[in-house]
């Protein structure tokens, strides 16, 4: 059981680390968002899973109610993270595109094409 908890912690920290590296490696705001949203969400899920496992193990061995609370709180934190993280990334990406930051090295940008078309029709 302890080995599993340590494994989860290692995997979670590794993904969080990769998310941070992605901030430096990638060229523009959109690709950076890929790294930061996906890797950090996934890493945090793993660290929280380690917390849940630890709490359940303690609950089973000692029977104290506070470890049950710990597990429930970790699960609620993961649920909140799963909802807010993609929403925030979406808001940042949309705001960036609206303020005219174009994706670097993009092979195709349908959103800019469609906005130009709409502007052409109304103007």
């Amino acid at each position: 059981m302890n080995a599993l908890i340590i494994l989860f912690l290692i995997v979670g920290t590794l993904f969080n680390f990769l998310g941070t590296v992605a901030l430096y490696r990638f060229p523009d705001v959109y690709t950076r968002l890929h790294g930061t949203t996906k890797c950090t969400t996934f890493g945090s899920i793993f660290t929280s899973a380690a917390v849940v496992l630890f709490a359940l193990q303690k609950l089973a061995s000692s029977g104290e109610g506070r470890f049950g609370t710990l597990a429930v709180h970790a699960v609620i934190a993961v649920a909140a993270l799963l909802i807010t993280n993609p929403t925030g990334a979406h808001a940042i990406a949309r705001a960036a595109h609206r303020s005219g930051i174009m994706p670097k090295f993009a092979v195709v940008d349908r959103l800019a094409e469609d906005q130009k078309k709409k502007g052409g029709v109304s103007a």
Binding site: F26, D28, T31, K104, V108, R110, L111
Partner: peptide
């Protein structure tokens, strides 16, 4: 570092 980004509809 292999990427080929773009926005699709």
């Amino acid at each position: 570092g292999k990427i080929r980004p773009g926005i699709v509809r």
